[in-house]
Structure formats: C-alpha cells, structure tokens
Design a protein around this nucleic acid. Sequence first.
DNA 1: ATGTGCTGGTTACGATCAGGAACCGAAAGA
DNA 2: TCTTTCGGTTCCTGATCGTAACCAGCACAT
Lengths: 126, 126
Amino acid sequence: MDVSTLPPPEAHESDTCAVVRAILARVGDKWSILIVRMLGDGSMRFSELRRSIEGISQRMLTLTLRNLERDGLVARTVTPTTPPRVDYELTDLGHSLQSITEAFGRWAVTHRDQIENARLRFDARQ
Amino acid sequence: MDVSTLPPPEAHESDTCAVVRAILARVGDKWSILIVRMLGDGSMRFSELRRSIEGISQRMLTLTLRNLERDGLVARTVTPTTPPRVDYELTDLGHSLQSITEAFGRWAVTHRDQIENARLRFDARQ
DNA sequence: ATGTGCTGGTTACGATCAGGAACCGAAAGA
DNA sequence: TCTTTCGGTTCCTGATCGTAACCAGCACAT
C-alpha cells in the first residue's frame, strides 16, 4: 500500500515487474482480495461486509473499500435513509478480477495443509 | 506478513475467509508473487533474482525467499564454492501456484490503464 | 426527557513492518 | 593492497496495521 503512483511513463513497454508490483501493492493485500471475493456474489452493505469478513476492523474495512473504490474495482452507493445505507458492489473491472481471486481461494484451501506441514518441517529444522 | 500461524483448528470446515487471509498474508505480498513468477522459467541464483526483479532490496529478497522456502514453495540449494552459489527453484507446490501468478500478471498488465484512469478520476473528485 | 441501539464512519495512538544503507567474511582478480 | 563478487545480516527510520474510543443522526423504548 505504499506505492502512491503507478510506474512512471518510461517503464512503458513490458517491464511487467513494475506493473505487477504497483498493482499488487493495492490489490494484493489480504483484505482487498477477501472483499472482492465477498462482493462477487452481489452487492453488500458496509456492516454486512464487516460481519462476514471475520477479523477485519471497521477502520481497515473503510480504508480498503476506499482504495478499491479509488482504483475503480468497487462502486459505492449511498442511500440517505435513517439509518444511512451504504452499498458496495463490484464494477466491471472488479468482476474481471473475480476468476483470479476465486482461483486463489481454491488454491489456498487446497494447499493449506501442505503449507502448514512445510512450515512445521522448516521450523523444526532450525 | 504479520499472521504468524495458520488458522486455529476450530476453523476447520469452510471458513475460507481465515484460510485465504492467512495464506495471502504470506504469498500475497508483491515480492512473493514476483519471485514465483521469475522462478517459473527455471531455477535462478540469488544475485540473478536481485538483478531481474528491479527495485527489490537485498534484505527483502532474502526475507521473501526465506518465507517462500519455509512455506515449501521454493527450494534452496547451496553449492559451497568460492564465491558461494545459492540457487532457488520452485517446488511442486510452488509450480501449482504458477498459473495463478501468471493470470494475475496478465490481469495487471491488461487493466493497468483502467486502474490509473479510475484513480485519476477519483482524486479529481476530491 | 432520557437512555439505548444501529448506522457508517473518523481519530488517536501504540505495535509492527517494509525498505534503504551500511557492514560482513572469504576468495578471486588487478 | 585494493577492488569486486557472492549471499547475507544488522541498524535505523518512516510508513502502515490494528485496536479502541469517539462521533452524528435518528428510531424506539423507558
């Protein structure tokens, strides 16, 4: 989340490296991908997201949603009722990321045990 | 990179949320994905990686490789010559992640402009 | 009238982490 | 002897994460 701008113009052709890095800096943090995954099933309001993404704080949810909105992955809709209602949904750009986040989710669940075992083995070796 | 352990046993069934979060915390940072992408083409030695992943510091390369090794995604081979030679290559587990990192790389390159534009529009609105 | 709850945030602050720069030993080459 | 290469490590600073507290606005109950 530290890279404030996308790579400079001179890196225009094919240094995938810098592009991937800059985009990952935004989209690659743990909350962003989780939120994209949750919103894949349809729009959700703020507190709904907060309840379904366990472990996220209000602050991080706000910040992450704001960044996703800034990058055009998520759209924010305010309905000025009482109490106010704020809905978030994926934009087309956000939807285009869906297949990747889903693939990642499947990979994570499938290989979870392997990673945990590798980690235990590594730590035992030290 | 802050979550030190994988999710506790009680979260065993299907709270994909915690699993994805814990795994992303390790694998989802910008350097890890870039390294997996680089190693996808074959094994590389330390300084080779440092030169080809522009912008990475020696320290972050060391740390990230260590974590990837710990999680069983990367194998480290030391050849005790002078100067020492250390090669890194993907394990089978690491290779299983390849298609995802490649898909992400393609997505990043393809949608780079859209993100940059969305960001400019958002900032202009404030 | 007064308290309590829900909404979607914001602020303050301490812990944690990323990242840069400098340093390291050993050996080869000039 | 001085420099370079190799793969690290150590120190330090500034950014970031995350927790807890606070906020306004309104409904409903006491």
